[in-house]
Design a protein around this nucleic acid. Structure first.
Length: 910
DNA sequence: CTCTCCCGCCACCCG
DNA sequence: CGGGTGGCGGGAGAG
């Protein structure tokens, strides 16, 4: 077998049997428009799906060797792949073109490859099944290539709420290279993002990243435009019509017909936002379509828009004729847009059931009702809940929802769905949804938030991200974009996760069951699934540093199997849930949430940088950053970190949604209000912790990994540390068990931290890696906050820890410091609640009051970033995200030292 | 089957 | 005019 395989391979790469990769890649890249550094490429290697000689790979990427190079080799070569694979090989052998094509694919599938190959290797699993799994993995599944996933990765690279001061520019080429895709794909993403003013075009291949600061504002504008356009009416009419028809069964014919006369009106639409004229360009269609699509949601009472209706409206807008082919094309575009919006956690996929079957639809889960009062929000939310949970909505529901939700409730989506959509995790089985006890909370919290926000708005306005933040007109594409966040530097790499890649199974396992609360669990799971990135984090156990500018979420879960009931179902939780969540006392929590929200968030409305994230349901971005330190300073980041270095940003991830819940939880939890906005993550952590505790009894010890994170601005002062898993072993995720997830977390209220630096000492140090399945035993890390008394924090400990010391203040490690400092500092000063203000870093908003003041600490955001970045790169291959790997990483890997971001130099190579 | 939506050709237009 | 953009729709994976 092997021999044959090899032969085939050879055939495939006839040019030069093994070593060619680089070259070919380069070629391919060119075709693709991607720039590839050949030299770099080589190292990265495994990219291709196709079986490659491991030996080669090894050569190229020694780093990985440790991981499990051998296996890979074996697998690839040895494994038969599958018939299909073999067939492909044969075919390719026969046709050079095909061959090339295949190779390209491989090259460009960083993601895929990453996951698969790396993961596998990293994981080290040795399961017998592996072959099968591998096989599957290897295959580039479509999902892996999906625009949504790509978008997440894209988003992960930038902070959701960049600091105002900084500017982040996006080089399409660079991004394309780093993400391993053709530039064409990036256009799709960017165009949609541009429609929401998350980015704006600066120049030829350059886009400026604005982040979500102005998102709300933009949405508000779109909503207004939509109202002006009468989209609501159109939608209603179409929907109703269809519904009615459906009911009566009459409808079928009608479907086609459609459009109301007014539709045309809509059409004109010159870009709503389009500020600048930008618009005029013809092209903007995708942009315009995206805006219109969003408008449909915003004006919709139900917040659910079926694709057919959307397509009809959009088509009409532009054209009166409904041509089937056009319709079809439109739908395709809508899917493209929807993928991006889903990645932004603004919508989620749902289905509206019809008699015939279901209709694909999307539900808005982003911020809603900017203007309306909120009174009813809660009620609405409650009413909506049920729906939220389900992916499928019946007409009835829709109708009911309409009533209920006039304002648009926040629909929280179970992360699960998204996630799996993206990630593939699983089927969207309902089960996931269950996650939710949190659901209830979340909703409640959301509602609360919402109300508060409203109330707050005034103040918030000040902060109001939108207004404030983006002075530049958010709308105006040309407007200068605001800040840039540290994050950017950090770049989260989604990739990172690669390392960790956990099996979905694992993730799933934890999620609900583990006791994480759903939120946590979900988030993790979803995140993981979604992003991959998460997985890594979790898996790795390596310590991560989270520095989200915005958000951080982390997750931690200890999941072990601990059965935590609660997590399991959100719904349950609602009630009471014993679950941890319950502990949090949901209700109370909710209140807290509200409070929390009030605090900071409100102001911002939009997103104060950090805050928002947490809150944001949708918005909340998470970013995980791996500390670069890992490499260098182990202190801070434990060694483990290194591996993980990858930072991931979760923020955008769909699962963000979790955040809200989390927040709520947190808020309660900490008395203060930890909850920093951003902190959705924290909350999670917290939650996590609890679960852990429960599970283990002692929470502390249990944790495995961790991340740390600092809340950016001190949000609320929560700081969370998750022990990364300490160990280097980290990489390996336990294969099956999820345990990997268990993450110990420490959460420190910022207040507690206050001025003190936090020191974390891992007791454990030895990171022993927790057994995969098991909970880690790590001792609990010790976290000390000097000065603090006991804080409520948790500690967790496992190993990896980052030493706070260093991090804390010590300048010594810049890297460390940076982050830490960030974290801490903010914390210190702020009153817990008060804080909202984000840490300096986060804040970014110009306007916002909050901004961080604190930053005194050494770590400047930038510095931090860098650090992170470095880390990120440095990461040994462990994590390497695929992506990174692909290109950048290659570079980076080498030097652990050198890495820097992606520069993907063009030519570096050679 | 239907739903999704990847992929990349190729036109358009900017610089 | 080259190259950046991105419309567009074939075709295929996934369910």
């Amino acid at each position: 077998m092997e021999v044959n395989c090899l032969t085939l391979k050879d055939l495939i790469n006839p040019r030069q049997p093994r070593l060619d990769f680089a070259t070919e890649d380069g070629e391919n890249a060119q075709k693709e428009n991607i720039f590839v550094d050949r030299s770099r490429m080589a190292p990265k290697t495994p990219i291709k799906n196709e079986p490659i000689d491991l030996s080669k790979q090894k050569i190229f990427t020694p780093e990985r060797n440790p991981i499990t190079p051998v296996k890979l080799v074996d697998r690839q070569q040895t494994e038969p792949w599958t018939p299909t694979a073999n067939l492909k090989m044969l075919i390719s052998a026969a046709s050079p073109d095909i061959r090339d094509w295949e190779q390209k694919k491989g090259l460009f599938r960083p993601i895929e490859n990453k996951d698969e190959v790396f993961t596998d290797s990293l994981q080290l699993r040795v399961v017998g099944d592996v072959a099968v799994e591998k096989f599957e993995k290897r295959r580039p599944s479509r999902k892996q290539k999906s625009l949504g996933l790509l978008c997440q990765k894209f988003l992960a690279r930038y902070p959701s709420y960049p600091l105002s001061a900084e500017k982040t520019t996006i080089s399409l080429d660079e991004v394309a290279v780093s993400l391993g895709v053709e530039r064409r794909r990036i256009y799709d993403i960017v165009n949609v993002l541009e429609s929401l003013h998350l980015v704006s075009r600066l120049a030829k291949n350059q886009y400026g990243w604005h982040g979500r600061h102005s998102l709300r504002r933009t949405l508000r504008n779109l909503q207004r435009l939509g109202e002006e356009q009468r989209y609501e009416e159109q939608m209603a009419s179409l929907q109703q019509r269809e519904l009615d028809l459906m009911d009566y069964k009459l409808g079928e014919h009608k479907k086609d017909g459609c459009a109301d006369p007014h539709d045309q009106q809509l059409l004109d639409f010159s870009e709503p936002d389009c500020p600048s004229s930008s618009a005029n360009r013809k092209d903007k269609s995708l942009r315009i379509m995206s805006q219109k699509f969003v408008m449909l949601f915003l004006v919709s009472k139900t917040k659910i828009v079926t694709l057919d209706v959307a397509a009809k409206i959009l088509i009409e807008g532009s054209q009166n004729v409904l041509d089937h082919s056009k319709f079809k094309t439109k739908v395709r575009r809508l899917y493209d847009i929807a993928n991006v919006l889903t990645s932004l956690a603004l919508i989620k996929k749902v289905h509206v059931t019809e008699e015939r079957g279901r209709k694909p639809a999307f539900k808005w889960i982003g911020p809603v009702d900017f203007a309306s009062s909120d009174e009813e929000l809660v009620d609405v939310a409650a009413s909506v809940l049920p729906e939220l949970k389900s992916e499928t909505y019946s007409k009835v529901h829709v109708c009911a929802a309409q009533k209920l939700a006039r304002r648009g409730s926040f629909n929280r989506v179970p992360a699960s769905e998204r996630s799996h959509r993206i990630m593939n995790l699983g089927p969207s089985s309902p089960s996931r949804e269950e996650q939710g006890p949190g659901g209830f909370l979340e909703i409640g919290s959301l509602a609360a938030l919402y109300q508060q926000q409203r109330e707050d708005k005034p103040q918030g306005k000040a902060l109001d991200g939108e207004g404030v933040t983006l002075p530049s007109s958010s709308l105006d594409p040309t407007a200068p974009f605001p800040v840039h966040p540290v994050d950017s530097e950090y770049y989260v790499n989604p990739l990172v996760h690669q390392v960790f890649s956990m099996p979905q199974k694992d993730l799933q396992a934890f999620s609900p069951q583990n006791g994480l609360n759903r939120q946590v669990g979900v988030s993790l799971a979803s995140a993981a699934s979604d992003v991959e990135s998460l997985k890594p984090g979790l898996l790795a156990g390596q310590p991560l540093l989270y520095v989200p500018s915005t958000s951080l979420f982390m997750l931690c879960g200890s999941l072990r199997e601990g059965p935590l009931p609660e997590p399991g179902s959100e719904r349950d939780s609602r009630g009471s849930e014993a679950s941890a969540a319950a502990r949090w006392s949901t209700p109370a929590a909710q209140k807290r949430l509200g409070e929390e929200r009030q605090l900071p968030e409100e102001e911002e409305e939009e997103e104060p940088a950090a805050k928002r994230q947490s809150r944001g349901y949708e918005d909340g971005p998470l970013s995980l950053v791996m500390p670069k330190k890992s490499a260098d300073s182990s202190d801070v980041a434990s060694p483990t970190m290194r591996g993980n270095r990858a930072s991931v940003s979760l923020e955008d991830m769909p699962w963000n949604s979790h955040l809200p819940a989390a927040r709520g939880v947190w808020g309660k939890a900490p008395a203060h209000g930890f909850v920093s906005s951003e902190w959705g993550g924290l909350p999670r952590n917290t939650e996590t912790e609890k679960p852990l505790q429960e599970n283990e009894g002692t929470a502390e010890p249990s944790l495995l990994q961790c991340l740390y994170v600092q809340p950016p601005a001190g949000l609320n002062g929560l700081n969370v540390l998750l022990p990364g898993s300490q160990t280097p072993h980290a990489m390996r995720p336990p294969s099956g068990q999820l345990p990997p997830l268990g993450v110990p977390c420490m959460v420190l209220p910022s207040s507690t931290l206050g001025p003190f630096p936090v020191l974390y000492t891992p007791t454990m140090t030895g990171p022993v890696s927790p057994a995969p399945g098991t909970v880690p035993n790590m001792g609990p890390g010790n976290f000390r906050l000097p000065g603090l008394g006991s804080t409520p924090h948790l500690l967790i400990g496992p190993a990896a820890l980052v030493n706070p010391n260093s991090s804390t203040l010590s300048p010594a490690d810049p890297r460390l410091q940076g982050p830490h400092s960030l974290n801490q500092s903010p914390v210190m000063s702020r009153p817990h609640n008060a804080i909202q203000p984000t840490s300096p870093v986060y804040e970014g908003h110009p306007g916002s009051v909050v901004k961080l003041q604190q930053s005194p600490t050494p770590g400047t955001p930038k510095s931090t970033r860098h650090t992170h970045c470095e880390t990120f790169f440095k990461t040994p291959g462990s994590l390497g995200d695929r992506v990174l790997r692909r290109r950048e990483s290659k570079q980076s890997q080498n030097a652990s030292s050198a890495q820097r971001r992606l520069e993907i130099p063009s030519g570096g190579a050679h």
